[in-house]
């Protein structure tokens, strides 16, 4: 379970301070697929990087399964990202000169998994994200955007994280491909019982998630909560 407690992040630009995240609190049960919508520059990415320990809050805390990030040293935060978090970015951010399988294997290598086990798991994950088997050994820059994002999702799943943070994962994809990606995330959250938080400015995609948040003036508000069953219908 993820608990976010009164999170604040402020930036100083010149003599002006802005607070894109200004007192955000919420909880996510394990296995929830949630979305955050908001205008560009409203602080969605800032919030995600606080949850993923890429950035430190000015105040407040994130508690994951009872462990508070606020008290962790840098090395532990790296370990937290490696073991508990999976990132999916708008720009995919895969390593261009590596193959799809090699990209998926990277987080497992960092976690010290043995090579044979890494390869087997990477292949099975790429199967789950429905990448054509013959494309698994292809270099990343020989794959389409949709395919690259599937590989990125497989990489995010590599170490069975507690939370997947996806920052506008469909932003660089056409509508139909984007829909497939959201469907994929939805089914993965169910199959792996993984908590997934998706940032998007596409309302129709947000409709497909169980919990929907809106970030506005640094504050998070939740729209109607739909029952889980309805979300899968």
């Amino acid at each position: 379970m993820i608990e976010v407690k009164d999170l604040v992040r402020q930036f100083k630009s010149g003599d002006r301070t802005i607070k894109p995240v200004n007192g955000v609190s919420f909880e996510l049960e394990k296995g929830t697929l949630a979305s955050i919508v908001g205008k560009s520059g409203s602080g969605k990415s800032t919030l995600l990087s606080l949850l993923g320990a890429l950035d430190k809050p000015t105040s407040g805390d994130v508690v994951v399964d009872g462990v508070s990030l606020a008290g962790l040293p840098a090395g532990k935060l790296t370990e937290y990202r490696r073991r508990d978090i999976g990132f999916v970015f708008q720009q995919f951010n895969l390593i261009p000169n590596l193959s799809a399988v090699d990209n998926v294997m990277l987080p497992m290598e960092f976690a010290g998994m043995r090579k044979a086990a890494r390869l087997e798991r990477a292949r099975s994950l790429l199967e789950q994200v429905q990448l054509d088997p013959e494309k698994q050994s292809r270099r990343i820059n020989k794959l389409s955007g949709g395919e690259q994002q599937r590989v990125a999702i497989a990489r995010a799943l590599a170490n069975e994280p507690k939370l997947i943070l996806a920052d506008e994962p469909t932003g660089n994809l056409d509508e139909q491909t984007g829909e497939h990606i959201i469907e994929l995330l939805s089914s993965l959250s169910r199959d792996h019982n993984t908590t997934i938080l998706v940032v998007t400015h596409d309302r129709s995609l947000a409709q497909k998630t169980e919990r929907r948040f809106r970030l506005q003036q640094g504050k998070l508000s939740e729209e109607t909560v739909r029952p889980r069953v309805a979300a899968r219908a």
Binding site: L54, G75, R82, I95, L106, F110
Partner: peptide, 16 residues
Amino acid sequence: RREIGVLKAIGARNRT
């Protein structure tokens, strides 16, 4: 730089 940032984001240690 960007690639290094990505590797760190997905959990690579500095020494790796």
